[in-house]
Amino acid sequence: MKKIGFSGTLDPITNGHMWVIGEARSIADEVIVFLSQNSTKQPRFSAEERRAIVLESCAERQWDNVQVVIVKSDYTARVARKHGVEYLIRGIRTTADFDYENLIQQTNVEVIGGAKTLFVMPPRDLGSVSSSFVKALEGPVGWNWTTKKFVPGPAYRAWIISWLHKEWQALFGSAAEDWFNRLTGADAYGGATRHYHNLDHLVHGLAEIRAWAANTQPAQRDADLVRAAFWFHDAHYGHEADAAVSNEEASARLWLASGLEPDAGRADEVATLIRATDHLQGGHVVHAMKEVLLGVDLAILGQDEEVYEHYARGIRAEYGHVPDERYNAQRTRVLEHLRGKAYGGTLYADPWFAEQYSEPAIVNLTRELAALG
């Protein structure tokens, strides 16, 4: 077969969609993805953004025989015929899917004279994956780690950037887009060498703050101070041995230079909270929200095993320049220190985080220590 088509809204494209496209590539020389632009729907991403995400996802897998056509105000099956496509391919997950798709197939062929449909059945692990399923995951603590399993890399990155953008605008408004782009870009959390202190870390922490605020009902002012500090607390993250100031101090100074908070007193409070995450000077910092921010930053230690292992691998990758023997010795000291605090009930000084994460953190830290030998 020369050409085969695949259609959908793809907001976002999932690994299930990618599987169907892969099946299409196995039976045709060329695959055309027909991307629906439906004025009755309100997708997260524009048609052009979705097109770019699909192409990037295919390029990531080195699929060079896939193109994307945006369908506007027309029947996809009819547009397919205009592009020389005789067959569309669709994934069938359930009998309900088949009944629906069979009806659409009959309409496509008998009513509008469009392309016919081939049906394929995805593997069991992709049987429940859909765009709606992925959207429903958004919000709770750890949602990003779960979502990552079900969408290709470019779709995942676009999704969390979109989520972060909403969080940013809720806090700082729409007048600081340049700083949002800077923090999520290659020189900060979006950097290629950021294996843990990256966009995932940013999303996870902001979700933790949401959960803490929802359950403890702090003053809005206090919650916003913590949010602002978390946005900037790892904005600078380097390993320069001869650096004049610590990463945390550099991040605090970057925050102060941003001008995002016009009130000098509040700006200084945020800088104080950022400095509280510095193991060298943080112990001397005094602020009512200090223990909350530290709880957010250390909450990763109390996640489920899969998320914690992802974190541990990320930390090792960020210190990839350190030889194994030296890394294992230094990491062991850090983990033993953290576990000792957890046993003593001081790892999480804020009650909310202590209740949620103290015991799981001990389990995770103990397991990593055993792996380090």
Score class of each variant (00 low, 15 high):
98 F>C: 01
78 R>G: 05
176 A>K: 10
172 F>W: 11
176 A>L: 11
169 Q>W: 11
104 I>Q: 09
66 V>R: 06
162 S>H: 14
89 I>H: 04
105 Q>L: 09
134 V>L: 06
150 F>Q: 00
163 W>R: 04
185 G>T: 02
90 R>F: 03
114 G>K: 06
95 T>E: 13
91 G>S: 07
103 L>R: 14
131 S>D: 03
177 E>F: 06
101 E>N: 02
69 V>Q: 05
122 P>E: 07
154 P>H: 05
143 W>M: 06
72 K>Q: 13
94 T>F: 05
68 V>W: 02
62 Q>D: 15
70 I>F: 08
91 G>W: 01
63 W>Q: 05
176 A>P: 00
60 E>L: 13
96 A>T: 12
86 E>V: 02
177 E>I: 03
157 R>P: 06
83 H>R: 07
112 I>Q: 06
106 Q>W: 12
93 R>Y: 09
113 G>P: 07
134 V>M: 03
57 S>V: 03
88 L>C: 01
109 V>E: 10
56 E>D: 14
145 W>P: 03
155 A>C: 05
162 S>A: 13
64 D>N: 15
167 E>T: 11
184 T>N: 04
99 D>H: 10
95 T>K: 11
56 E>A: 13
66 V>N: 06
139 G>F: 07
123 P>I: 06
106 Q>H: 13
116 K>L: 11
94 T>I: 04
126 L>M: 02
149 K>H: 12
185 G>A: 01
128 S>Y: 15
122 P>G: 00
154 P>I: 02
177 E>P: 02
62 Q>G: 12
139 G>N: 09
59 A>H: 10
82 K>H: 14
137 L>R: 03
148 K>T: 09
71 V>K: 05
124 R>G: 10
123 P>A: 01
79 V>D: 07
118 L>P: 08
100 Y>A: 08
59 A>S: 12
93 R>L: 04
114 G>C: 04
131 S>W: 01
68 V>G: 01
112 I>L: 03
144 N>M: 14
153 G>S: 15
135 K>T: 01
166 K>L: 15
152 P>L: 09
55 L>M: 11
165 H>Y: 13
68 V>Y: 02
140 P>A: 08
178 D>L: 09
79 V>M: 08
94 T>N: 05
152 P>W: 01
122 P>C: 03
123 P>N: 02
63 W>K: 03
127 G>M: 04
127 G>P: 05
154 P>W: 00
97 D>G: 04
179 W>S: 00
79 V>G: 06
116 K>S: 12
160 I>W: 05
167 E>P: 10
128 S>G: 11
78 R>I: 09
132 S>Q: 08
149 K>A: 09
157 R>M: 10
131 S>E: 04
69 V>T: 05
149 K>C: 09
143 W>G: 00
61 R>K: 15
167 E>G: 11
63 W>S: 00
129 V>H: 00
172 F>M: 09
150 F>G: 00
